[in-house]
Simulated scan of single mutants.
Amino acid sequence: MTTFYPVANFDRKSFSNATLILPAVSLGNVPQLTSDLLITSLGLRRIGYVGLGDTVAPFSGKGDDGEIVTGGLEVYGNEGSELYVIQQRSPTLKTKKDEHVELIRQFIASSSFGLVLILTSLDAANQDDAQLLTPHQRILPPSSSSSSHKTLQTLENTLPPLQLNIDSDFPTTGSSSSSVYPPFLPAAGLTRRLLSTLKDSSIPHGAITAWCVEGDNSGDAMSLAQVVLRLLGIDDHVQLQQPKSWEGLFGTVNGWSGGAGQDSELYG
């Protein structure tokens, strides 16, 4: 089954052993904003689509260079590069969740990626006091192959494992939730399903979580993007750049509040 539709004669053999950054639509759209930053800062170009866009809410608009961008699963990178990024600009349709996850699974399975990193955001209302000092955590499968992959080794050594203390109303309760995989993830969208579908695959994978609240989440995205660059070992060589599409994203530059930045009454 064809799941990837390349543009400009892109050769999908370039995916072999490369790293795929996969954002999960979650609280504050922090993963999508992070993908924006990575695409712009690394000079990545759209090289294809996963699926026909029928699993997400219809959307189209103009990109930074005047091109048409969609809400579907767009893949960015450069032929022969070692990093590719998926961007999804509109939410997954509720009736298409299973189909959406299966589409991603088939794309990953047929592309021979060397590593898949899922980015997700979590509701900070579930954050404990200790995690206030550690805004990012890692999720690795119990039978993680991190010992054989340099980036996952770095992930394991850099970020603490996600620990959740969830009320008993939830299916994975208390501190024992760390023994359940994938764990319950508050406000993380389809992250659990994505981790579940990759759990039994031979492709090395893991997730990076970011605690946040809804508002001006550009700072959260900048912080998460820095974590990704550090894990990839290129943080000293890349200067993060905000895309043009962010202008006015969280309010006008000269807001009616009288401030010099975003409208503080709206976004704090």
Rank of each mutant, 00 (worst) to 15 (best):
L162A: 02
P142H: 00
S111R: 01
S112R: 12
L132W: 14
L115C: 11
L159A: 07
D129P: 11
A130N: 13
R138P: 01
V116I: 13
T154F: 09
Q106P: 03
Q127D: 12
P161K: 04
A125D: 13
L103W: 09
Q127V: 13
S148D: 03
L162Y: 00
Q163P: 00
L119C: 00
R138N: 04
Q163I: 07
A130W: 13
I118V: 14
P160R: 03
N157Y: 07
S121Q: 09
L132I: 15
S147G: 11
T134V: 14
R105Q: 07
D128C: 14
L140A: 07
L103T: 12
T151N: 07
Q106A: 07
K150A: 04
P135H: 14
L140N: 05
S144V: 02
L133I: 12
Q153I: 06
L115V: 11
L117N: 03
H149G: 02
L117H: 04
D129F: 14
L132V: 14
T134H: 15
R105N: 04
T134E: 15
L159E: 06
V116G: 10
L103V: 09
L159G: 06
A125N: 13
L140P: 05
A125W: 12
V116K: 11
D128A: 12
R138K: 10
P142F: 02
R105H: 11
G114K: 00
T154L: 11
I118S: 05
S148Q: 02
Q137T: 14
Q106C: 06
P142K: 00
S145C: 05
T120P: 00
T134C: 12
D128P: 12
S112G: 05
D128S: 14
S111V: 05
Q127P: 12
V116A: 09
L152E: 07
F107Q: 06
P160E: 09
A124H: 10
S145P: 05
L159C: 08
S110P: 02
F113Q: 02
N126Q: 12
D123M: 11
T154C: 08
S145I: 06
L103D: 08
Q137D: 12
S121V: 08
F107E: 07
S110E: 11
I139M: 00
N126T: 12
N126R: 10
S145A: 07
T154N: 10
H149W: 02
A124S: 15
P161Q: 05
P161M: 08
T120M: 02
K150I: 08
G114C: 02
L132C: 13
N157T: 11
S110R: 04
S145H: 05
P160N: 06
S144I: 02
L103A: 10
S145D: 05
Q137A: 15
T120F: 01
I104P: 08
L117E: 03
Q163K: 03
L119G: 00
H149V: 05
V116N: 10
L132S: 14
G114D: 05
Q137N: 14
S145Q: 09
L117R: 03
L132A: 15
L132T: 15
L119H: 00
L155G: 07
L119Y: 00
H149S: 04
S146V: 04
